[in-house]
Design a protein around this nucleic acid. Structure first.
Lengths: 234, 234
DNA sequence: GTTCAATTGTGTATTTTTAACACATTATAG
DNA sequence: CTATAATGTGTTAAAAATACACAATTGAAC
């Protein structure tokens, strides 16, 4: 590797020293199940944090982008390709990793648990309720909190929660999801009104099945409104 | 350095390969002067971007935190210690730096140009108006845009702009600053009303000096309201 | 098939927030 | 003393957010 001549302040340190920092990405993978917001975690196997929950992450390869590394992890761990991903913050305290200097770029991603059942059997992957996760390895609790906070800000005015739901969902599910994320109760009438106003939903003229009470109507996300999958008019 | 045993997917790559990534921080240092939002830049001296403007940055040393590295740069370049700093985003495209794989953590910081005149003479430092900076070295234009966007979001509900102003300022200056950052015109009466409502300002009962028109009252930021420098009651 | 339990679906009034808007006042410059 | 250029101030209208209650529909239990 050539010398990095932009950095004229190397002083007494040689280039070699600067390459003693390793870089990882960690993904806070959110899911929604049983009316609870959950996060995908794995049992940590390094001795300092044996048995603690840890986020899914890996070192960034020298030839891959940060996004690429994150998508690779998501693919490896969940089998999912087309998931929502957003970079949140980079954590770099000198001693955050017992094995040496590792700086990690934290992302959150939103996946739909129900439509894509994971094979959680043979490894130690686990969907854990976000609100009662006690201890975690490394600084992963802080990373989780930061990502959760970012998610809360995000959902307030961006249509991203749909990534957490099946294609068809009821307003009840949608509201329950918001309540789980924001950790507050919402007024049902105002909630519904707001969503219809915003025109984020498409009424599918179908009803829920197999609920032990009056079934609600099903909706899908109004993707057309947000420029995804735009129709080409020739 | 010990092996990083958490990462079990090294596969055919050895640890050594993972340490071939260098890490830098870049600071988008905002200032406010002549009713314009400005950014501190420096002439780039590497051949690929000769003469282009570049942000202030440096490699992160193996033994310093990300914040520490940013504060070091700020101190070295501006002489300022106690400045507002906020991490924004990490940029890591594989080919973003001609000299090799360098990932950079972008921060913005807010400094008060007037109270702390910099020594801009002997080096190629320069306060450049944010709105008419054409080309920049590396991906620094993108970094600047991202940081500016973040600043815009931030000022909407957090009292940070005061870091860009002298201790004493008029409402006119404050409004002009908001207009520069947001790039819109604001209604003067509503602007004033809003700030008094929010109780962010302390009336100093002083008037501007040396203005060629009716002088405005001077205010300072209401720090007490935001828990900084809390008074210890015994 | 009647009743119960649970949940859906719906509208209005109130409060709060935001936006639009004009004129008298005060200082300096000439 | 007049012109200029800015400061300082309040009201009204529109929009957004909040609070709130009852009838309708389904499945389950009897």
């Amino acid at each position: 590797m050539k010398q990095i001549s932009r950095f004229s302040h190397l002083g007494e340190l040689s280039d070699k020293d600067y390459f003693r920092i390793a870089l990882s990405v960690d993904c806070v993978i959110f899911g929604f199940e049983d009316d609870e917001l959950k996060v995908l975690v794995i049992k940590c196997n390094i001795k300092e944090y044996k048995g603690k929950w840890s986020l899914l992450g890996d070192l960034v390869r020298p030839d891959e982008d940060l996004e690429g590394a994150s998508y690779r992890i998501l693919k490896e761990r969940t089998g999912l390709d087309d998931v929502y991903l957003e970079q949140v913050q980079t954590f770099g305290k000198v001693n955050r990793h017992p094995a040496g200097r590792v700086i990690t770029i934290a992302n959150f991603s939103l996946v739909n648990i129900k439509d894509h059942q994971l094979k959680l059997s043979d490894n130690e992957l686990h969907w854990h309720p976000v609100n009662d996760i006690s201890e975690m390895a490394f600084d992963h609790k802080e990373i989780l909190s930061t990502c959760l906070e970012r998610l809360r800000e995000k959902v307030a005015d961006h249509p991203v929660v749909f990534n957490l739901l099946p294609k068809k969902f009821s307003l009840r599910e949608l509201q329950s999801l918001y309540e789980s994320i924001l950790n507050i109760k919402l007024d049902r009438r105002n909630f519904r009104k707001k969503f219809f106003m915003m025109d984020w939903l498409v009424d599918l003229d179908e009803l829920e099945q197999d609920v032990p009470h009056r079934p609600g109507k099903l909706y899908k996300f109004n993707q057309a409104k947000f420029g995804r999958k735009p129709k080409k008019v020739s």
